[in-house]
């Protein structure tokens, strides 16, 4: 006999212990055990129901004139409710498990833009498939030809300023910006629009410089 959803609780605790930014390894063994637990509850319920049907049929056959017995005694009702609640509980916990993992995968797509290898190894097959499809859908939505034509993952919260200060990390000569040209040398600091700084930051040509509010007080 099962154990009142204790396995499902272990499953959620495991996921919780990994923190919000990472996934726990997909616990296929435990999920399978929970499924068999649900099956067990189901078969017990069915056993009770068929027993009731049999009794009912007997009563009808025995006394055709008497009113058929519809009443279920409280004891059986409680037992059935217990099995039913256990099934519902297990279902809820499993759904939470799946949903939570799905949310974390989505979060990774938005913040990290890719699924890190370490996390990928912890996903099950269908989760990887979900991630790929989600990623593709987002890509299509952001593309110029079919969607909005903007990289929506750039600013997950509104930028405070349209310009950022960057410092050159390698000599890459002149870059053409929307408002003119600038020469990127090691150590030179230039101010440029945030969306134009993004590709340079990504390929490592420049690095971000702390904000300066003009009074010499830098953000520490």
């Amino acid at each position: 006999m099962s154990e009142l959803g204790r396995r499902a609780r272990e499953l959620l605790k495991e996921l919780k212990s990994y923190g919000t930014g990472t996934l726990s390894p997909y616990n296929e063994e435990l999920v399978r055990l929970i499924f068999s637990e649900i099956d067990e509850h189901n078969s017990q319920t069915e056993a009770i129901v068929s027993e009731l049907r049999r009794k009912q049929a007997e009563a009808e056959a025995g006394a055709a004139g008497a009113t058929p017995q519809q009443e279920v005694d409280e004891l059986t009702a409680t037992t059935m409710c217990l099995h039913y609640e256990c099934i519902k509980r297990n279902k809820r916990l499993l759904l939470i498990y799946m949903n939570e993992r799905m949310q974390r995968l989505k979060e990774m797509r938005w913040t990290l833009r890719a699924l890190p290898e370490a996390q990928k190894a912890r996903c099950c097959q269908s989760e990887i498939q979900f991630y790929n499809e989600y990623s593709r859908a987002l890509q299509t939505y952001m593309s110029k030809s079919e969607g909005v034509g903007m990289d929506l993952t750039l600013d997950t919260r509104p930028p405070k300023d349209t310009f950022v200060n960057v410092r050159g990390l390698k000599d890459s000569g002149e870059v053409i910006l929307s408002y003119g040209r600038a020469t990127v040398l090691v150590g030179t600091t230039i101010s440029l629009p945030a969306e134009e700084a993004e590709p340079l930051l990504r390929d490592g040509t420049v690095e971000m410089v702390d904000w300066d509010d003009g009074f010499g007080r830098n953000c520490s």
Partner: peptide, 21 residues
């Protein structure tokens, strides 16, 4: 505290690095 020191939060880096880090 950041605000009182007169600094503004970083735009790009802060937006991308997960909050936990």
């Amino acid at each position: 505290e950041t605000w009182a020191r007169g600094a503004r939060p970083r735009v790009l880096a802060a937006a991308v690095v997960p909050s936990r880090k």
